[in-house]
Simulated scan of single mutants.
Amino acid sequence: MKILIVGYFTETSKVNIIRNFPEEWNVVIVPPGEEMLHHIADCQVIIPEHVKIDFNLLSKAKKLKLVQTGAGYDNVDIDACTKLGIWAANASGVNAQAVAEHVMAFILSYYKNILFLDIFMKNKIDQDQLYYTGSELNGKTIGIIGYGAIGKKVARFCKAFDMNVLVHTRNAAVQSDGVIQVVNFDDLVSQSDIVTVHSSLNPQSQKLMNKEVFKKMKNTALFINTARGGIVDEGDLIEALKNKDISGACLDVFEKEPLPIDSELRNLSNVILTPHTAGMPDGIKFHKKRYDFFISNIKCIENGEEPESKLNQLI
């Protein structure tokens, strides 16, 4: 069984990932490009990051049986997989706990000024020069866009901090209860002190968060994105942050990844950035629970069974 993992990984990450797979499997980790094309011809499974899996690429993979993604699958042409008789599956919910915890870490770091205070202490500045603003979470309103596995965990975490929880979702089955209040999109963005995105990237959500939306938010509001960079018009977000249309942002995902070194986001004092690691609590580019799921799904394919969390149906 040959497994092709496509993405940008450090040597340490590669070792950690390969060590997790059965020794008898041939696991190859390469970045997008020519080397990837060399290996795709004879792999049975591909796990793609930072590469578009379209009909053209799939047609070169003559032995491919499974395209396995993490939670998101916006980079995979599911219809093309089906036409070519290739299973497509994601790992829905596997990283929900990790991402929800990351959201809470963002919120607490921002409102408790953790990054600023750490630098203050380590620079040995006189205590008389200390000045900052912050606040408690009790009574704040968080608006959650998208209410899947991650959104539900974020809601429960925030309720434990005595926050008010608003939710906007296209799932009509989700109803207001003792934890959440379901509202329309405009009410959510205008009433929330914190807006956090947990929807998938699709034509409806592409650049959902744009200039018009940021103008509707409170100028004291915090924006959080741990979902997909394409959900946000990054240029509009940068302008909103510079113009103080919103108070700040905490971002783990970006329109272009890795985030360009010259991105203006790196220079804004009201922004906290992490390098798309919210779903990888075990270390850079590694999450054991996620890879355990991948291995289980690959074994299903190896045994002629349907994969879990399948995204298509083969005849």
Rank of each mutant, 00 (worst) to 15 (best):
T133R: 10
K83M: 06
V99H: 03
D177H: 02
A91T: 15
L222K: 02
E11F: 02
I224T: 10
I150M: 13
M209E: 01
N75S: 13
A98V: 14
I246W: 03
F214T: 00
P260Y: 01
I144E: 00
I231C: 04
M104K: 08
N219F: 07
L84Q: 11
N243C: 06
K152Q: 15
I17N: 13
E24L: 07
N95E: 12
I5M: 10
N267V: 01
N26P: 02
K63W: 03
Y110I: 15
I3C: 00
V30N: 06
K218M: 06
P275V: 01
S296W: 01
M1C: 06
D193G: 08
R290Q: 15
V182L: 03
I142N: 01
I125W: 01
K65M: 09
Y111M: 05
Y111V: 01
S263K: 09
N267A: 12
P258I: 04
S269A: 13
Q181G: 04
V99K: 02
G143I: 00
V189T: 07
Y110G: 04
A149H: 15
V51R: 01
D128Q: 14
H38C: 10
G134T: 05
Q44S: 14
Q181P: 00
G143P: 00
A96K: 09
R156G: 02
M1T: 13
V67E: 06
P281K: 03
I53F: 08
